[in-house]
Simulated assay, not measured.
Amino acid sequence: MKRIYLKLLTIAFTLAIASCSLDDDGTNFQYAPLEITGASLPDTFELGRVYSIDVKILRPDDCTMVDRFDVSRSFTDSTQIRTVSAVGIILDKEKCNTVDDEVQDSFQFEVLYDKPYVFKFYKGSDDQGEPEFLEIEVPVSQKP
């Protein structure tokens, strides 16, 4: 009985492996930062709350899709700094049509510190290739 079970398992495994195709269909992609054109934050954060941060992102063509946000943190003695960039997937296609479309997306943000937060949203690069940011500072209040 064990031998029959082992043979059936081997046949099933072989069929499963053989049915998988590793052929390349020619669709490749790369990740790239996308331009953030605007963000909506409250006037004040409340310590301990979770907020949904709405962000407007420029989608330059129909080969570009918004994938996720990359948020890095740093701080000074008096401020919490969050640098936010939108990460896009750009499909490697021969022809992409320009759309210049603004897409709205959001991410969740939990207020953990009582110091003000400065959000630096990546807007793109200037003529010298230096990154430019939209900066928004939000003070934090204690719970009532």
Rank of each mutant, 00 (worst) to 15 (best):
I17Q: 07
E137K: 14
P144K: 11
Y122R: 04
R49V: 07
R73F: 10
A18C: 11
D24E: 15
I17R: 02
T27K: 11
A32N: 13
Y5H: 08
P60D: 09
S74H: 00
Q128R: 12
D105M: 09
K120E: 15
E135K: 15
L22Q: 14
I89V: 13
I53Y: 08
S72L: 03
G26A: 12
D62E: 06
S125R: 15
I136D: 03
T10S: 13
E110R: 11
R3K: 10
D100C: 06
V50S: 13
P131F: 03
Q30W: 12
E94M: 05
L8Q: 08
D54E: 12
T98W: 01
A18G: 10
V138G: 03
K115A: 06
S125N: 14
D105S: 15
L134S: 01
L47A: 00
Y113P: 01
K93H: 05
I57N: 01
E135D: 11
A12P: 10
K7R: 13
S52F: 00
S85A: 09
T76V: 00
K115R: 12
D100P: 02
F45V: 04
K123N: 08
S72P: 01
E110M: 12
R3Y: 12
G38M: 10
V111N: 04
K56N: 11
N28K: 15
D127L: 11
K95G: 00
E132Y: 00
L134V: 11
K7C: 07
D25S: 14
Y5V: 15
P42R: 05
K143N: 11
C96N: 06
A16H: 07
G88C: 02
M65T: 01
F13E: 06
M65G: 02
D54R: 13
A86P: 04
E94A: 09
S78W: 00
F107T: 01
S141R: 15
D54S: 10
I90N: 08
Q108H: 06
V103S: 07
K93F: 01
